[in-house]
Design a protein around this nucleic acid. Structure first.
Lengths: 154, 154
DNA sequence: ATAAATGTAACTAAAATTGTTACAATTAGT
DNA sequence: ACTAATTGTAACAATTTTAGTTACATTTAT
């Protein structure tokens, strides 16, 4: 399997909060309608985002707030917040230690996998929530050619 | 989930073949003993490696052969051979098209995920099976300080 | 007060991964 | 030629992970 939709859905939540704050109630129900999942799934993810210090929420109040500006939240920050297993590749943990290959392949793969993972994470680290928001607005304006991009500004 | 142990186990199989060819029977049973899995799992993976042109086998004969030199087989070649889903990140496929965020986040994430995936795959592409074999031998010689590294040569 | 919302636990369902059983087809040794 | 060992593959089962659901105490908002 792959990096789960938890990651994509979490980016979605943060993008939703920033896009619709002051325009719509930011309830887990409204967010869930955009992701097309259940409000409980949204609240579960928001709990992790809160634990990681990315958002602030108040129990009972449908008004989450970003704790940082979108330009200061990287995709890697979000990845760290919601993915517990942070390795991308899985090393088989039970190879035969009495075999030259089985006894050394785990640490060998760890070394080379590390390089690939770091390269990917570095890319995530250089992409911000603001980049995501910008891209969303550009794509939206391509669908609504008559609408000024500026009309999405608050 | 993550890139499965299929990938790690496949690298293991190829490293085993190269390391023990001419020294041990290269049966799925012997290979499985090194990975600590079942022979059927090994044969299943070897089937994919064969389809991808990385190894050659003869039905009934326990003597698989690499089709290329270890320096010419990259980890990315192996990845392509055994992982059907070749994306690392999962994009939620059912977001609400009537929402600005839900309607544009899929293509947006595809764009940024692509960059991270390409970075990781590029690293895999620059690592060869020979690099893996070299690392395995060095690590093994660190465990057997009295043994000459050269004694692992054929 | 009452309604609406969050936070969280426990459970269920679905999907993916890994391992097992079974067996036909082929090779290898005697 | 016969037998044992092996591959190739399908079908199935077990395990693990992910995603969704139900339930409910707690808090906010009107």
């Amino acid at each position: 399997m792959r990096i789960s939709t938890r990651f994509s859905d979490s980016i979605h939540i943060l993008a939703f909060i920033e896009t619709y704050k002051g325009k719509l109630p930011l309830s887990s129900e409204n967010i869930a309608r955009s992701i097309e999942t259940s409000p409980v799934v949204v609240r579960r993810l928001m709990g992790k985002l809160r634990s990681a210090g990315l958002i602030k929420t108040v129990h009972g109040s449908a008004d989450p707030k970003l704790m940082h500006e979108p330009k200061d939240i990287s995709l890697y920050d979000i990845f760290l917040a919601v993915e517990e297993e942070q390795h991308i590749f899985t090393i088989d943990p039970k190879t035969n230690p009495e075999c030259v290959v089985g006894g050394n392949i785990q640490s060998t793969l760890r070394e080379f996998y590390q390089q690939a993972e770091t390269a990917a994470k570095a890319k995530l680290a250089t992409t911000s929530l603001q980049d995501i928001l910008d891209s969303i607005l550009v794509k939206q304006s391509e669908k609504d050619p008559q609408k000024l991009i500026g009309s999405n500004l608050k």
